[in-house]
């Protein structure tokens, strides 16, 4: 089957890439574009490890066909902050030592960034719902909650 051109905005850059029509956005990001921040945990939308922003909204990239992103904007964890200028959430996660094994963290950060973009001062309940689609098998939710709360207080409405 012939590959097709996927033209989209990836982490603020106009991007063209050849993809098979039957691959997911997650596989195109990881295999064809070498962005391995988004992870495949379950492949069925249950775990949230593959969370990216599609037109600013958090989605499970394992349930999106790559070509469904044509003409749209995708942001992955690689485009959330820069090494020399971390997103306030990344900064808080580092300082509070949130990651344990780290596998779920890119997805959690993307879900949390989308939450804060929409709701700069969420309640504890809203934070818990905001990351309810992300499973952490180390069960490090307590520190996640603390870090998101702190990031929301420090620097609320940066870009998602």
């Amino acid at each position: 089957m012939a590959k097709q051109v996927l033209s989209f905005t990836l982490n603020d850059s106009e991007t063209d890439v050849l993809v098979q029509p039957y691959v997911t956005l997650l596989d195109a990001l990881r295999e064809d574009l070498e962005l391995t921040g988004p992870k495949e945990g379950c492949g069925t939308g249950d775990c949230g490890a593959c969370t990216v922003h599609l037109d600013g909204k958090p989605v499970a990239s394992c349930l999106v066909l790559a070509l469904q992103a044509r003409g749209r904007s995708v942001r992955t964890i690689e485009g959330l902050g820069r090494f020399d200028a971390l997103h306030p959430l990344q900064d808080a996660f580092v300082r509070l030592g949130v990651p344990q094994c780290g596998f779920c963290i890119p997805g959690v950060l993307m879900a949390a960034a989308a939450l804060l973009a929409e709701n700069p001062h969420p309640s504890e309940e809203e934070i818990r719902y905001g990351i309810a689609g992300n499973l952490c098998r180390c069960t490090g939710y307590t520190k996640m909650l603390a870090a998101i709360t702190e990031a929301a207080g420090v620097a609320p409405a940066r870009r998602a």
């Binding site: 949230g48 499970a60 349930l63 999106v64 879900a111 989308a114 939450l115 309810a132 689609g133 992300n134």
Partner: peptide, 9 residues
């Protein structure tokens, strides 16, 4: 329905 990541799709 689902989680926020699911509801956006």
């Amino acid at each position: 329905v689902g989680s926020v990541q699911i509801r956006n799709l």
